[in-house]
Design a protein around this nucleic acid. Structure first.
Lengths: 201, 201
DNA sequence: CAAGTCATGTAAGAAGTTACATGATTCT
DNA sequence: AGAATCATGTAACTTCTTACATGACTTG
């Protein structure tokens, strides 16, 4: 029974600090789509393997919780995973899937669709910005310090943020092209976001 | 029994041109992770629903094939899907998941990891460039014509390409930061790929 | 007074992966 | 000679989603 990416994701979060399954789910789901109903069984599995352990913490006015911590064998498993081959990333983006067949719609409906996508991406952008703030609050604002063990989280959020911003620029570019669609024709129009407003023809 | 994204993906490909299940898999998997063992049952399902039909084409020196085409009800289902609410995109990127816990490694090993990622992204970039070429070949080079029904595929590939290029820039930025890690400290260093080499401190 | 937060889990069903199965031809 | 291409499918297994289940407290 080998470990899957989700298992390593849980170990990765626990390598940052000790946490309850509830908190692990909240943190991890900022970077990896998952739910508590998946994380709890994963924790049981990892505990059986000796990679994590927990202490029961009794609380007043709140349900009791289990605070998990990673063990030495857990850190070992994490290290082995980190240095071994990485699988290519998987992106399942319904907006882009839809794009394949938008030719069955009128141009103005396509533009509406792209604007809907922009709203979605803006929400994602806002979400990441909140993650940035939460991470800063959690570590008293020293995230961007290269010595902080949350420095990598800073790199991660910057990555996600910049992709969101690129996506918005792409949407604007696409909207503009569909606007001009009825009027004229363009050849070899490349999306070149980093050479601002200088599109090669 | 409602349709899932993969079902619509198959319909979307068939809205471009009639194709065998084998070809559908090859095309669709450029934009949506799937395999032929998933696509064949999907086609059976879609045929039962009346959204696609097929003709058997006998071949010499090759196995016989079923050429599928989308029906009017199929186009209708596609249209309804296009205009209805879109789910947020899901990205499962093992490299970024690894990043959460890289603090358990030494800086030089982290840099190796980021360089490995760059290789992976470069491969993805090459792959998209091939898709661009194949699409051009398929349509006699008129992809970038706004009137072409492959124009959207052009937009799609430009999207993927630009994300790959952004990813490479991010990797370079991250490598540079880890290189300076042992030497010094930096505060509020933001990844700003579109204002080239002007990182705020 | 309804919804959300904190906190743990189970279970059924849907979706995805990987291997199996076949077989002639073509490329390296 | 072995791998890849074309072409279809099935089956076993793994993973993921969604709903169920509980319950006190807090916020709007």
């Amino acid at each position: 029974m080998g470990l899957i990416k989700l298992d390593y994701g849980v170990l990765a979060i626990l390598s940052q600090s000790d946490m309850s399954g509830y908190d692990i789910t909240n943190r991890l789901s900022n970077f990896w789509k998952t739910t508590h109903s998946r994380v709890y069984p994963v924790l049981s599995k990892l505990e059986k393997l000796g990679y994590v352990e927990h202490e029961l913490v009794e609380q007043v006015n709140k349900p009791d919780k289990k605070i998990y911590h990673i063990t030495e064998p857990g850190i070992g498993a994490l290290r082995n995973w980190l240095i071994k081959d990485t699988q290519p990333s998987i992106k399942k983006d319904e907006s882009l899937l839809k794009l394949i067949s938008v030719h069955v719609l009128e141009s103005d409906v396509i533009i509406d669709l792209l604007k809907e996508r922009m709203k979605l991406v803006k929400k994602e952008e806002e979400f990441v910005k909140k993650v940035v703030e939460n991470t800063k609050a959690f570590s008293n604002g020293v995230v961007t310090d290269t010595r902080s063990n949350l420095f990598n989280i800073h790199l991660l959020t910057q990555n996600i943020l910049s992709h969101a911003q690129l996506e918005l620029q792409w949407c604007e570019w696409a909207v503009e092209l569909y606007r001009q669609k009825t009027a004229d024709n363009f050849f070899d129009i490349k999306f070149n976001p980093c050479k601002n407003k200088e599109h090669k023809n």
